[in-house]
Design a protein around this nucleic acid. Structure first.
Length: 1031
RNA sequence: GGGCGGUUAGCUCAGCUGGUUAGAGCGCCUGCCUUACAAGCAGGAGGUCACAGGUCCGAAUCCUGUACCGCCCACCA
């Protein structure tokens, strides 16, 4: 068996076998029945988007989670890692559309056309996306399994599967019933060419050369300021065509002219609309000398077009300005979409412009101003303009109706009252705000904020809490509708109707039928006034008579019974065609995956989860919303810890997702280096402080330039190979290991030493892993395994394995140390450790050291107990003694190398040491001889330097290596040694002669320095003596 | 514009609360195919810790400023 192990570690077969073993044993499965509150550990995966296969960033993210999960599973906890994927609304829809177009197949535009023609284009397109999703979901889950992720695969979820969909409907209903969902206007990124809405990151910014046009708007009544009569105000704009929709001119209240002008009216040219001059802080004061671009160009007057500019929209909101949309969806000027206040007879000019494309209209309008002598000036200007990534035409801010969640509205009958949190509040207008903020404590934003402030929600590293906090404090209402087809369709049905005369009761009576079908959340809005006439709180009564006019009725069905399609249709209701923001369903992920709103065992056992492990860019979008929804729906935070890991960057320091990372499928690395190698390298790179550049293998071109090629995982690969080979050695030597033959009193110094080191590493790894440091345990294990166990312990153990008396002791210690090391390594390199563990189980089934330490074995290392209780092995004096041995060996090896002595050549040496250390050194001289290639080592308290010997100094000892006869080389070596020692002495002397240091530094630091100086001085004397003897 | 990081060996990075002569891996140089491992073993060279000030007996570490690099958010009349 042992002999059959290959020399080079072959990850593929080991991975396969381990995967099989784990799948059979279902060790990843979390069992609710064995879970007790203190003994559970739960993590939900940040669900990867089904847009594409995973990249290195995912590999890192999931490696770290798996390390935590495996660690806690081995600590004996009922452990759940919930896997799944995210439908990623806009991204996926876009990707599929792109693919279809690339393949010259019917794409989104075509399906939209079908939909328009009454065919079912929507569901056909969704089916296309669905099959894309199926493909990538399978691929992603396969990648995760290949990486060794010990997710509970029996529970795999998808944000759009029925379990999650039910949670989405339930939360939406709850929000709707609580009056937290409302209909509002919002400017979206509109692509007039494809006539679709774009997400912010689908907008490409391009620098465009354009102009600033300075347009003069006449005042209705001239104003006199400082003796000057002012007849016009001049506004500067880069988009003159929008002036048709102007509803105000704004100026900064601190502008000296504001006093005279604010409140006056302006007659909007061409249109003839009378619009007010309003005061708004947002307006930049003019200053031609300023370095600020805006101040240089500003006239102090800003045209306000709420329907066509996000900023102006805000100003419009502040001043209650009318919103006049002058454009059609195709970007042409139109009076059919909200612009009513013009007159064909009075305004032939307007009639001219209507129907023009926005760019044509721009020219026409500028020309009109020029002709009318109202164009004050034109200046060159280049600025950033958003373009559609799809059609590459400039995007148009376009006003549309959207669903919103009110995040700062106090929640009626909130399940968490402010009594549940201990934060200070201040009450204004009857609302309790979290002190120092304008966030009501019992609003959604408030619910997400207080766990942070009261310390229950912790960020690692801590600095990220600022992100979270300031975002929530400045939170605006959350627009949740998206004009897409791929996603959770908004569960709201609506119908317009008009009321005339006495039809009110009859109409409303009909709506009551809906309630009988389970719809209890309902709202009827009077279109003209926007007034809500039936509140969700009032449900059926009182039914009041209202004014005649147009109404819209919205219904949100309960998640369980639902509003049956037929019923809705029969009643003339139509479902909203939009879908929900992807983050809406993501926000529910920690509990939707567990089956909420059903109250079940899983939720009881595993909610709240322990940690969320994610990248920093979604703290606001995702983390905060999960906390919000967890608090709102379950009355508890979804996780206590948020671990934000570093990002992997490419060689240029760019985000991986933008360059290198996207191209690299973890599977290619797993194939070439093995999953363990990848995990080990990734975990070892992770630190709290900064992002990390992926080391890449550099490629040198013929012209001498170097180009980055592929990421390097050699480190991990080499480590695995070392682990494999050390284990081979163990397997060859552990046959017949008999725990009964172990005798604690016969442990030799190397046994005691390696056990001491082992105990220290167990302590270190356990502690660092608990505080989310991953590179520390990786480094500690790397050093311990490679440098301590392999380089020293195994080398010293080799001869002992051939010694009948020593063999049983060394075998038991080696088996035990290897066993414990494998367990600690397992979270990092799961496959290879499982493979070796299985071999070890065959060859040395019981690994224990008498009564000193017992380590129960297990059928899989995955469920083997984590090493513990080894502290009694810690022996600092033993470690110091071994260090002395190592130093002696190092000194002799250096001499061997310097004199180019062949490794096979046996040497004789003399070691001169103080009386007190002689016994220890003599006891252990074999350690030095074996590893330094000495035939004999004479150890004396006093001995002259043998002729023709090289001298080395270790601590307070002298080592002479006999018969190395190159006087000049020896002189140079000693001279160099002398200089080195002297350079150490100087700063120490300076330090110790400094009165302040001696009196003010910690005594142990001073003592340390004194000791060190004494050692160095002794060494210097010795070197000088040797030098003198040479001469 | 607001916020947050980074700058340590040729490369990628450690270095926790200031205190031995600043570390690792890779790369480089020298010698070894030593019966676990050449994906290895042994040894070595290589750093005024971005810059300028400050605090302190003492600064890679704490403070201030500068430069460059990066990230997030906001915004572009």
């Amino acid at each position: 068996m042992a002999q059959e192990l290959p020399k080079i570690y072959d990850p593929q077969s080991t991975q396969q076998q381990a995967e099989q073993l784990w799948a059979q044993g279902r060790y990843y499965h979390a069992n609710e029945k064995t879970a007790t509150p203190k003994k559970t550990y739960a993590v939900v995966i940040p669900p990867p988007n089904v847009t594409a296969a995973l990249h290195l960033g995912h590999a890192l993210n999931n490696t770290l989670q798996d390390i935590l999960v495996r660690f806690h599973r081995m600590l004996g906890k009922a452990t759940l890692w919930m896997p799944g994927t995210d439908h990623a609304g806009i991204a996926t829809q876009t990707v599929v559309d792109k693919r279809l177009r690339a393949e010259k197949k019917p794409a989104l535009v075509d399906y939209k056309e079908m939909e328009k023609n009454g065919q079912d284009g929507r569901s056909q397109f969704v089916a296309k996306v669905q099959s894309w999703k199926d493909e990538y979901e399978a691929r992603i889950l396969g990648q995760l399994k290949s990486m060794g992720c010990s997710c509970d695969w029996d529970r795999t979820r998808f944000t759009m599967d029925e379990v999650c969909a039910k949670a989405v409907r339930a939360v939406f209903f709850k929000l709707f019933a609580d009056g937290l969902i409302y209909r509002g206007k919002r400017l979206v990124n509109w692509d007039p060419a494809t006539q679709t809405v774009l997400a912010d990151d689908e907008v490409e910014h391009q620098t465009v050369k354009g102009f600033f046009w300075y347009l003069k708007y006449p005042l209705v009544e001239p104003v006199v300021i400082n003796g000057q009569t002012i007849e016009h105000v001049t506004v500067a704009t880069t988009r003159p065509e929008t002036m048709l929709g102007d509803t105000a001119v704004a100026m900064n209240p601190s502008d000296p002219r504001a006093k005279a002008l604010v409140g006056k009216q302006v007659r909007l040219p061409i249109v003839g609309r009378l619009i007010p001059i309003v005061a708004d802080e947002h307006v930049v004061l003019p200053d031609p000398e300023s370095s600020e671009e805006k101040a240089k160009f500003s006239t102090g007057f800003l045209k306000v077009t709420p329907a066509h500019d996000p900023d102006d929209w805000q100003i419009g909101q502040r001043h209650n300005l009318p919103v006049i949309n002058v454009m059609a969806p195709d970007g042409s000027i139109s009076d059919k979409f909200g612009w009513t206040d013009w007159d064909v007879v009075k305004n032939p000019d307007v009639e001219n412009i209507i129907g023009m494309d926005r760019f044509e209209a721009r020219e026409a309008i500028v020309e009109w101003f020029r002709t009318e002598k109202l164009l004050a000036e034109v200046r060159d200007y280049s600025h950033e303009v958003g373009h559609s990534y799809r059609s590459h035409v400039p995007i148009e801010p376009y006003l549309s109706d959207q669903w919103y969640i009110a995040v700062k509205k106090p929640i009626p009958n909130c399940r968490l009252s402010m009594d549940d949190c201990r934060l200070e509040t201040e009450t204004r207008d009857g609302i309790a705000y979290i002190k120092g903020t304008d966030v009501p404590g019992n609003s959604l934003a408030g619910l997400a904020l207080w766990p942070l402030l009261d310390g229950r929600l912790k960020f690692y590293p801590e600095r990220y809490r600022n992100n979270y906090q300031t975002w929530l404090e400045n939170l605006r209402d959350w627009p949740i509708s998206r004009q897409l087809w791929w996603g959770h369709r908004i569960p709201v049905w609506s119908k317009s109707f008009s009321l005339t005369g006495n039809s009110w009761e009859e109409t409303v009576e009909k709506e009551r039928l809906l309630y009988l079908h389970g719809s209890v959340a309902c709202r009827i809005i009077h279109v003209d006034s926007g007034k809500l006439i039936l509140n969700p709180e009032e449900y059926l009564y009182p039914i009041r008579k209202e004014t005649e006019g147009e109404y819209i009725s919205y219904f949100c069905p309960t998640p369980d019974e639902g509003l049956r399609d037929e019923v809705a249709k029969a009643m003339g209701y139509k479902q909203d065609s939009d879908v929900l923001d992807t983050w809406f369903s993501s926000a529910l992920w920690p509990f939707s995956t567990m089956g909420w709103p059903e109250q079940n065992e899983t939720l009881k056992a595993f909610y709240p989860t322990n940690v969320l492990c994610t990248a920093r860019e979604i703290i606001t979008l995702w983390v905060s919303r999960m906390v919000m929804m967890g608090q709102y729906c379950l009355g508890d935070i979804p996780f206590g810890d948020v671990y934000i890991h570093a990002m992997i960057q490419d060689g240029q320091g760019r985000k991986m997702s933008k360059s290198l990372g996207n191209g690299i499928d973890p599977l290619t690395i797993i194939e070439s280096h093995g999953a363990d190698a990848m995990r080990f390298t990734l975990a070892g790179m992770t630190t709290d402080t900064q992002d990390v550049r992926m080391p890449v293998a550099a490629l040198t071109l013929p012209d001498g330039r170097t180009v980055n090629s592929s990421p390097k995982f050699d480190n991990g690969r080499n480590f695995c190979n070392k682990l494999w080979n050390a284990s081979r050695f163990a397997m060859m030597n552990l046959e017949g290991t008999d725990p009964a033959a172990f005798d604690a009193s016969k442990l030799d110094i190397t046994d005691k030493w390696i056990l001491s080191r082992l105990a220290a590493v167990v302590r270190d790894v356990t502690e660092t892993l608990t505080s989310y440091r991953f590179n520390d345990p990786v480094n500690a294990l790397y050093k311990f395994f490679w440098n301590d166990l392999c380089d020293w312990y195994l080398e010293w153990a080799k001869p002992r394995m051939a010694d009948a008396a020593q063999r049983p002791i060394a075998q038991n210690v080696l088996a035990f140390a290897l066993d414990q090391t494998l367990r600690m390594l397992h979270p990092f390199v799961p496959f290879i450790t499982e493979g070796i563990f299985q071999n070890l189980n065959t060859i040395a089934p019981v690994r224990k050291l008498g009564t000193l330490a017992a380590a129960p074995s297990a059928e899989s290392i995955m469920i083997a107990p984590w090493p513990a209780g080894l502290d009694s092995f810690i022996a600092p004096d033993i470690e110091r003694q071994i260090e002395t041995m190592q130093n002696c060996i190092g000194a002799i090896r250096e001499i061997r190398n310097k004199y180019n002595i062949h490794p096979a050549k046996r040497l004789i040496g003399t070691l001169v040491a103080p009386q007190g250390r002689l016994q220890m050194l003599r006891d252990n001289s074999r350690l030095i001889c074996e590893l330094a290639g000495m035939e004999q080592l004479i150890i004396e308290a006093d001995a002259p330097k043998p002729a023709n010997s090289a001298a080395a100094i270790v601590e307070e000892m002298q080592i002479y290596v006999h018969d190395v006869v190159d006087v000049e080389a020896e002189r140079q070596r000693l001279q160099k040694q002398k200089e080195f020692i002297e350079s150490g002495i100087r700063p120490l002397q300076a330090k110790l002669s400094n009165e302040s240091f001696v009196s003010r530094a910690k005594p142990e630091v001073v003592e340390q320095s004194r000791q060190k100086l004494k050692d160095l001085t002794d060494q210097l004397d010795a070197v000088n003596k040797n030098l003198a003897e040479l001469a």
